[in-house]
Simulated scan of single mutants.
Amino acid sequence: MSITPVQFPSFPTAPTTPTPVAGADAIAPSLTSTNGVSGPSGSGEEFGSMVLDGLDRLEGLNDRADNLAVQAATGKLDNIHDYTIAASEASVATQLTVALRNKAVDAFNEIMRMQV
């Protein structure tokens, strides 16, 4: 019986030493527009694509766990540990997504409470 290595999703890990943000020099000049209003230009598209990519990954993890659950229930799954690992990965990814969503909602509510 051979043992296959576990493949975890590629979530970013926290760096041990501070590193400069890639492209920070290119973004900094675009924070002030010609009309004097400050704000990032074009970074909303990048953030939106990151969010959609993360949700697609979460959906893929849940689909894989669901498929393995069906295989385990029907007796077609040889290694039950594949299902338990996939279910754990999907659970952790869902918890992370919910925590990020909660922080985003908290930040939005805090911004809405600011005096203008």
Rank of each mutant, 00 (worst) to 15 (best):
M1K: 11
I3N: 12
T4F: 13
T4A: 15
P5S: 08
P5L: 01
P5H: 01
V6G: 05
V6Y: 07
V6M: 06
F8V: 06
P9Q: 00
P9I: 00
S10P: 12
S10V: 09
S10E: 05
T13E: 11
T13F: 11
A14F: 10
A14P: 04
A14Q: 11
A14K: 08
T16H: 05
T19P: 00
T19W: 09
P20R: 05
P20T: 13
P20E: 06
P20D: 03
V21R: 08
A24H: 09
D25K: 11
D25R: 02
A28T: 15
A28D: 12
A28E: 10
P29C: 02
P29H: 03
S30H: 08
S33Q: 13
G36L: 01
V37F: 10
S38D: 12
S38Y: 14
G39P: 08
P40R: 07
S41R: 15
S41F: 10
S43R: 14
S43L: 15
E45L: 14
E46R: 12
E46D: 13
E46N: 10
G48Y: 07
G48L: 00
S49G: 09
M50L: 15
M50P: 01
V51T: 12
V51F: 10
D53K: 14
G54L: 04
D56G: 08
D56E: 14
R57D: 12
L58N: 01
G60V: 06
G60C: 04
L61V: 00
N62C: 14
D63F: 06
A65T: 00
D66P: 04
N67V: 09
L68P: 05
V70K: 01
V70Y: 05
V70T: 04
V70S: 02
Q71V: 07
Q71C: 11
Q71W: 05
A73F: 10
A73Y: 03
A73V: 02
K76V: 13
K76Y: 12
N79E: 03
N79T: 09
H81A: 15
Y83L: 15
Y83Q: 13
T84Y: 05
I85T: 15
I85N: 09
A86R: 04
A87Q: 09
A90Q: 00
A90L: 06
S91L: 10
V92T: 13
A93N: 05
A93R: 00
Q95K: 13
T97F: 06
T97N: 01
V98Q: 09
A99M: 04
L100H: 05
R101D: 06
N102I: 06
N102D: 13
K103Y: 08
V105P: 03
A107K: 01
A107P: 01
A107T: 08
I111L: 01
M112L: 04
M112H: 03
R113P: 04
V116H: 13
